[in-house]
Each structure stands twice: as C-alpha cells, then as structure tokens.
C-alpha cells in the first residue's frame, strides 16, 4: 500500500479516535444542559469498603423497592421512574423492566438482590472523582456527616435525561464537597 493511502486511512482512524471522546462529552453535556435536576439523598457507606484512591463512593437512601414480581433477578437492568418530593429530593414513582415510552424522568439501575419481594438496586452514579489529595479527607467527611443526625444536608445533584444520568456535584451543608473539604 502506498504511503498516501496509509496516511488517508490513518486520518480516518484519528478522526474516529477523536469522535469517541467528543461523543462522550456531547452526550453528557446534553444531559447537564437539557436534563432535569434531581437531588438524591445519600447515606453512609460501608466503612470497611477500602478507600478507592481518587474518588469517593456514594450510597443512596433510594436503593430498594417492594414488588411481588418474581422476575426481578440479580444483575438485571431495571428502570426507576422518578418524581420529586416537596423538598425537591428524588422519589421512586414506579419501576419497570422495559424502558418507559411515556415522557417521564427515569434512570437505569441494576438489581443487587431480590429477597422475597424486597428488591435492592444500585444506582450507577455512585462515584464522585476528586483531586487525589482531597479524596481521602472527602470520604472521611462524607461518612462523618452522614453518621450525624444531618442526613438532609448531604445529597448528590444528578441531571437526568432519557434514562441517562450525570452526577454533577455532592453537596454538604449547602456547599460543594470540593470546597467543604478544604475548610
């Protein structure tokens, strides 16, 4: 093959290589721009869960539902239909196996286990990346604040659009965790 042909194919490859991150950026920016903002109340995570390095692991109060449907199996994908309570926090409106067709807000989740109708699921936006030096302090702070009687003060801000969600910030006492941790 001639050099020019190789170069042309390489340019196409380079464009594809650039298109993938571009598409990731565009899709997530669209969610941040046009999605609906929900606040998800967090709860303490397992303190034995080892520190992960440059991110903190989040756990949400909204993590289960009851159903008589026996076809909710472990690792299966489910769609959690969302609504907001009076304070603006996310609530479960309904659950379905299939992607909802009506224009409602929903997020994808994965079933952890089904214990005789008590179904526990995991929301996918459970990682908040932080600067390496702040992550450990932030995780400790997150656990400490969650243990106190101040659950309302800690929540995640998540933008939702067509089943996809983007975690934009974690708020502690009205402040971003990034700023709060430096105090």
């Amino acid at each position: 093959m001639k050099t020019i042909h190789i170069l042309i194919i390489f340019i196409i490859l380079a464009l594809v290589q650039l298109y993938v991150p571009y598409r990731m950026i565009k899709d997530h920016e669209d969610i941040l721009k046009y999605g609906t903002l929900y606040q998800f109340k967090t709860k303490p995570i397992d303190p034995n869960d080892p520190f992960r390095g440059k991110y903190i692991t989040l756990s949400y109060e909204m993590d289960s539902f009851n159903s008589n449907d026996t076809t909710y199996y472990n690792n299966n994908k489910v769609y959690i239909h969302l609504t907001k309570d009076d304070a603006g926090f996310a609530q479960i409106k309904g659950v379905s196996h299939q992607e909802p067709t009506e224009p409602i807000d929903y997020v994808e989740a994965f079933i952890d286990y089904n214990d005789n109708g008590y179904i526990r699921f995991e929301l996918p936006f459970n990682r908040y990346y932080m600067e390496e030096t702040k992550a450990l302090a932030a995780e400790q702070l997150y656990q400490q604040v969650n243990r106190q009687d101040s659950i309302e003060k800690v929540y995640a801000m998540v933008y939702v659009k067509e089943g996809k969600a983007v975690l934009s910030d974690v708020i502690i006492a009205g402040e971003s965790i990034k700023d709060y941790v430096t105090k």
Partner: peptide
C-alpha cells in the same frame, strides 16, 4: 493517549466503572 482520553472524560463526568 487513546486510553487516557477515554478514562479522563469518564472521570470528568463522574461516570461509573
């Protein structure tokens, strides 16, 4: 560089693993 770009974009938008 390809691996770095994808992983960093995932990090910027706090994408799950």
């Amino acid at each position: 560089a390809v691996g770095t770009a994808i992983s960093l974009i995932s990090q910027i938008y706090h994408l799950p693993e």
